[in-house]
């Protein structure tokens, strides 16, 4: 299972929302964090989130069984370890 965490603050909400639209992605909560999980890779489209530069590059709060393989102007891609 691929899991990453995003802190629930106003700037980050769209990251969890867009991530949750991916196939087989579930968005749960652990305290004030979104827990975003899927059996395989999770891809978040940068433009769909509307995040500005500083928000986009600091939105990942934690990784469980996962690694970031892409985080650039186009997308965030989190894959199983």
């Amino acid at each position: 299972m691929t899991t990453f965490y995003v802190l629930d603050v106003p700037e980050n909400v769209s990251v969890a929302t867009v991530a949750g639209q991916g196939p087989d992605v579930t968005v749960a909560r652990v305290g004030p964090y979104f827990e975003i999980s899927a059996p395989g890779a999770i891809v978040v489209d940068r433009r769909a989130t509307g995040c500005r530069h500083a928000v986009w590059y600091s939105c990942v709060a934690g990784l469980r069984g996962a690694r970031v393989t892409q985080q650039d102007k186009d997308a965030l891609r989190v894959e199983p370890v």
Binding site: V30, G62, L63
Partner: peptide, 18 residues
């Protein structure tokens, strides 16, 4: 990567109680 992996452990341990 190491920091975010360790931080996820701390989130699981402490965030719900917080």
């Amino acid at each position: 990567a190491a920091l975010l992996t360790r931080k996820a452990e701390l989130i699981v341990e402490r965030a719900a109680a917080w």
